[in-house]
Computed example of a mutant assay.
Amino acid sequence: MSEERLALLPPRLKSALQTLGSAPKALKIELLLEFARKMPPLPEGMQGRLEQVHECTTPFFVHAEIKDQRVHLYFDAPKEAPTVRAFAGLLAEGLEGESPEAVLAVPEDFYTLARLEEIITPLRLRGLQAVLTRIKRQVREAQN
């Protein structure tokens, strides 16, 4: 990823991706599992507001909203699906509370900095990209 594109990443997302990218393969799996454990719980009453990301092979749901000019993210995925839960935890850590402009500026291939292709299949990576696409669309809709 070029320096110019790196500069587009919010600091917490950039830090998380750099940590993953510099980790050996075995540790990278452990770090992803840690992100899966960090996936925030879904608040009461949020169920009906989430949108399914059909590109994910596992049922995965997301909702982004803006409150006080900050993006707030909500996710739902089965407990037995650590990969998609890791994606949710990573995105929550990296994007929660950011400005809409910062979220919209994240490059579609942001995950390449983490070198996730070492441990994640291309199909799953496309799912992660689709999650970001949904988040961005929902943020744009919330701005209008």
Rank of each mutant, 00 (worst) to 15 (best):
L13D: 02
F110G: 00
T57N: 12
T83V: 15
A64M: 03
G48T: 04
A114R: 00
E118M: 13
Y111V: 02
V84L: 14
L95E: 02
T58Y: 11
P78I: 08
L113I: 11
A88H: 04
G89L: 02
Q47A: 14
E96K: 10
E93R: 07
L20G: 04
P41Q: 08
V103C: 01
T133S: 14
A142C: 11
P10F: 01
E65G: 15
E96P: 09
L27V: 15
R12P: 08
A114V: 02
R124Q: 10
R134D: 08
L132C: 04
R70P: 01
P59T: 10
F60H: 03
L13Y: 02
E65T: 13
A81C: 10
K79F: 10
P107H: 06
V53D: 04
R126T: 14
P43D: 14
Q138P: 07
L8S: 05
A114C: 04
V139G: 00
A114P: 01
E80H: 13
E34H: 08
Q18W: 07
L33W: 07
F35V: 06
L42V: 10
F61P: 04
K136Y: 09
V103T: 06
V71L: 05
I119E: 00
A92D: 02
Q143R: 15
P41W: 11
E93V: 07
P78H: 11
V53Q: 01
E141M: 06
R5C: 06
E55Y: 05
L116P: 02
Q69K: 15
M39Y: 03
E34R: 10
P100K: 15
Q69M: 10
E93G: 13
G21I: 03
R37F: 06
D76T: 06
